[in-house]
Write a protein that binds this DNA or RNA. Structure first.
Length: 236
DNA sequence: GCGACAG
DNA sequence: ATCTTGTCGC
């Protein structure tokens, strides 16, 4: 099902306001829990696509059976863009749409896998952290780029990893999900340990670099955006 | 001050 | 993220 994105009245309008929100919410992140075991229950991927010219955003949430990776449920949301893209403030652009899609699901999401960062963030409060605090759900971030962080190249075999570093602080892990292919960048969101986040990521990547959750959500939100644009119902 | 910078 | 064709390879 597709719902409409609603932007809260108190949503930040400036970068300073957005950073202040991050500084305030950061203390509510829970890092002491291992999180759900890989391979059981449900795992949900979320992703967002944009049409800046038409001020349109589309989000998707796809629930997979963690054992079989088959799609169990999905939902989409379409609406207006809530914030410009600013490095470090991605969550303010993605979260209203993601919350709408998650809210439209017919069943609980279980672990949520985000396309971006959690702890690996300039203020240690990326998209996955933010989404976790707002929903209370266990979340992790799996990103395609190292952002400003550094790491040694992991060994070639799938499953190899290297610490993702902010100076001397380990903020995540560069994790090889396919032999000899560029790693993905895993970081903790809310209520999941880094070891468990990496185990989940490996369980979700039987054939591709990116987790099946992210791949399914990416395809679905693109389709939702194309349909919204084509039908014209949300065009300003 | 100048670049770099998740999606 | 998005603009964009064909092409090489499993």
């Amino acid at each position: 099902m597709t719902t409409t994105v609603r932007i809260p009245d108190d949503w930040p309008a400036t970068e300073d306001q957005a950073r202040a929100v991050q500084d305030e919410l950061r203390g509510r992140v829970v890092l002491g829990e291992p999180g759900p075991p890989p391979g059981t229950g449900h795992v949900t991927g979320v992703d967002v696509a944009y049409d800046d010219d038409r001020d349109l955003v589309a989000a998707a949430a796809v629930v997979l059976d963690a054992g079989t990776l088959e799609v169990v449920a999905e939902a989409t949301a379409v609406g207006r863009i809530s914030f410009p893209y600013v490095p470090g403030l991605l969550a303010f652009r993605e979260i209203p749409a993601v919350l709408a899609a998650l809210g439209a699901l017919p069943r609980p999401p279980g672990l949520v896998v985000c396309d971006g960062y959690g702890l690996a963030h300039p203020r240690r409060f990326g998209l996955a952290s933010h989404l976790g605090v707002l929903t209370g759900l266990p979340t992790i971030g799996v990103a395609k780029n190292p952002f400003t962080f550094t790491h040694e190249p992991p060994a070639a075999p799938r499953g190899s990893s290297a610490p993702l570093l902010a100076g001397a602080e380990e903020v995540g892990r560069a994790l090889r999900t396919r032999d000899g292919v560029k790693p993905v960048y895993v970081s903790v969101g809310h209520r999941v340990s880094l070891d468990n986040a990496c185990a989940h990521t490996l369980a979700l990547t039987p054939a591709h670099r990116q987790p099946e959750t992210t791949r399914r959500a990416d395809a679905l939100c693109r389709r939702a955006l194309a349909e919204a644009t084509g039908a014209g119902e949300y065009v300003a």
